[in-house]
């Protein structure tokens, strides 16, 4: 079966200096993969390359068997690749509703997006006329996530979902990610070493210095990480 995403010897970076040094990774349709690693490992660069924001300097990115090297990010987004970037992936000067309007470029109607977003995150419904920059961190992340959850993407890329958020909010967001996974969506989640992600992932990959170091079941990786940290 053709994998949803396939990276072959992927190399990419900034200003002629590679950050990724030959990544090989496959995500099957409906699979949830956690991409873990310390700061500077190249996780965000990997997501930026898959979503078309950075052109690879070598290797290939294939979606459903099609080479998509050099395809513009907006075309990939319309084709079903949805990246929720790290930090707050919202437009701060636009209202909640206007942020949702921006999701309609994927072809889904605003009424459908609004209905689903406010149902999933009722708090957003209460704040639809408020500018996104004035929302709390958790609400902003919910708004960013609602783009992913209302536009039916084929591949979801989540970058540091838990960054700077209270554990309760993180738990709520991962609950939603779990629901998406159950619907059969392919998901690649980047986190530093958050344990929360291992609860929803089918497979975990550890990246260090632009290379994949370990691939395994979430439970095994979780144990290895604990040993690495605690010397067990």
């Amino acid at each position: 079966m053709t994998p949803m995403l396939e990276l072959r010897d992927l190399r990419a970076g900034y200003g002629g200096i590679d950050v990724l040094h030959g990544i090989d990774l496959t995500i099957a349709s409906g699979e949830v993969v956690a991409l873990l690693g310390p700061n500077g490992a190249g996780k965000t660069t990997a997501l930026a390359t898959i979503s078309g924001q950075i052109s690879p300097s070598g290797g290939t990115v294939s979606l459903m068997g099609h080479n998509v090297n050099g395809v513009r990010p907006d075309r990939l987004a319309r084709a079903g690749v949805c990246l929720v970037p790290e930090g707050r992936g919202v437009f701060p000067n636009l209202t909640v509703r206007e942020n949702l309007i921006m999701s309609t470029y994927t072809g889904v109607s605003i009424s459908s997006i609004e209905e689903r977003a406010y149902e999933l995150f009722p708090r957003l419904g209460d704040r639809r006329g408020q500018t996104a920059g004035t929302l709390s961190g958790g609400e902003q992340q919910m708004l960013a996530m609602s783009r992913a959850m209302t536009t039916d993407p084929a591949l979801l890329l989540l970058d540091e979902l838990s960054m700077g958020l209270a554990p309760m909010i993180v738990a709520e967001l991962y609950e939603r990610v779990g629901e998406l996974a159950q619907k059969g969506l392919s998901i690649l989640i980047v986190e530093q070493f958050a344990q929360a992600v291992l609860g929803v992932a089918d497979r975990a990959v550890v990246m260090v210095n632009g290379e994949i170091r370990t691939v395994g079941a979430p439970a095994d990786i979780s144990r290895q990480l604990a040993e690495a940290y605690l010397g067990g």
């Binding site: 924001q53 907006d74 970037p85 919202v90 000067n93 636009l94």
Partner: peptide, 25 residues
């Protein structure tokens, strides 16, 4: 404030990269 293209024009000022991630050019 009401049309998609107008909202997108303001969105580009906020963040070009995020705009492209929503599918707009």
């Amino acid at each position: 404030h009401r049309s998609r293209i107008g909202v997108a024009m303001r969105a580009v000022v906020d963040s070009r990269s995020l705009t492209s991630l929503t599918g707009a050019n």
